[in-house]
Design a protein around this nucleic acid. Structure first.
Lengths: 208, 208
DNA sequence: GTGCATTTGTGAAAGATTTCACAATGACCA
DNA sequence: TGGTCATTGTGAAATCTTTCACAAATGCAC
């Protein structure tokens, strides 16, 4: 199942398809065609079939896909067959929203630790989780490794935190700080940058 | 300046370059080469030059780019020469984080209204802004049009809100709801979907 | 069981984006 | 002024992604 060189765009769509399938499942649908899935997911049926074809053959010709089976296959492909431990560095507004959002737990992501450099925040309990000082970061991650670290610090300190995490063996980072991070090849980084999203919108507003 | 068919990926990088340039400006740097800008932005010098070449010629051969001039040019290209009015629909955790994040105001985005369907939330003041009931949405947007609407509602009601906004002339939407939105061609939509980002990370963790 | 209506899976074609590579230009120095 | 060095701007090539189009399955009706 694990061939190399799957495009980022393909993986994003797989995740999207899974979300659509969960909707169909909730509606009680048993099967979907690539056409219907594409319509819901905002793409084309050929794209759906091509994306899936990188991983195998999941449909029945003439019939479409079993909603249940395809969901299950996608969860397998995306590695969602188990839960993931997430540590959050930075207890500001966005860190807070992350920690308190119940959707993550539902989707298999458990936030297991939150850190901040501000001693005034340390000790606050958020959603049952005590904010710890960043100086405890290394010890905490050694005792209880995290699968994914979310960086929600100011830009200036983000790289330093990432370096510490990488040294501790963290292989996946979700970065909300507005800086590009340097990491070794075997560490996955995803960036979420709201200013950037807003600016692609202002560009669109001014160019059509 | 306004040719058609600029790739989305190019626009995102332009926004990124601007962020890098602001950093260089803060460090007191007068000029940068495409090489230095690329290193900071996580891309290549050829990519930087190609991206810029769609809009004109901003550098001096042998010298590089004036940090000040290039910043200013990019702000022009991205349409950041003025302020933008943003309305937020949905006063949950993420809506709250959005409204209270001071960075948006600093970057030219003013949140001018926030709506929710939950009457218990209506009337709360967030950062000096009163939460209004969604039934006031149409009247409010007619009185005080917004340039950009951020959708922070549950998925089930997102499309309905978008339809109302589009009918009122909104041309740019930032969608945090985990559904694909249908809009006319002349409306720009950007999606922010954290579950999806997490899932591209779990895919990466399981496929290398 | 035959034929019809569907819909998948997939090579090949088209289209888009990134990288290459180099001529052109400007700054600086002697 | 002329030579050297650095760096841009840009066609052309390479690579990557999406779309096309159709043979191969499958179910269903009769």
């Amino acid at each position: 199942m694990t061939m190399r060189k799957i495009a980022e765009s393909t993986v994003r769509r797989l995740s999207l398809y899974l979300r659509c399938l969960e909707g169909f499942e909730a509606q009680g649908l048993e099967t979907v065609s690539s056409d219907v899935l594409a319509a819901r997911g905002g793409t084309t049926s050929a794209q759906v079939r091509k994306d899936l074809s990188f991983f195998g053959s999941f449909g029945k010709r003439g019939l479409g896909y079993s909603v249940r089976e395809l969901s299950s296959a996608l969860r397998g492909i995306l590695g969602l067959g188990r839960r993931y431990r997430v540590a959050v560095i930075g207890a500001g507004k966005i860190g807070s929203a992350l920690v308190q959002y119940p959707g993550f737990r539902q989707r298999g992501f458990d936030i297991v630790a939150i850190f901040d450099a501000d001693t005034r925040k340390v000790g606050e309990a958020w959603d049952g989780l005590r904010v710890r000082h960043v100086r405890e970061l290394d010890q905490a991650l050694r005792d209880q490794p995290a699968d994914i670290v979310a960086i929600v610090t100011p830009g200036e300190v983000a790289q330093g935190m990432v370096d510490r995490c990488v040294a501790l063996g963290v292989k996946a980072i979700l970065n909300f700080a507005p800086v590009q991070l340097q990491v070794p090849d075997d560490v996955a980084v995803k960036h979420v940058n709201l200013a950037l999203e807003f600016e692609t919108l202002t560009f669109a507003l001014n160019n059509r």
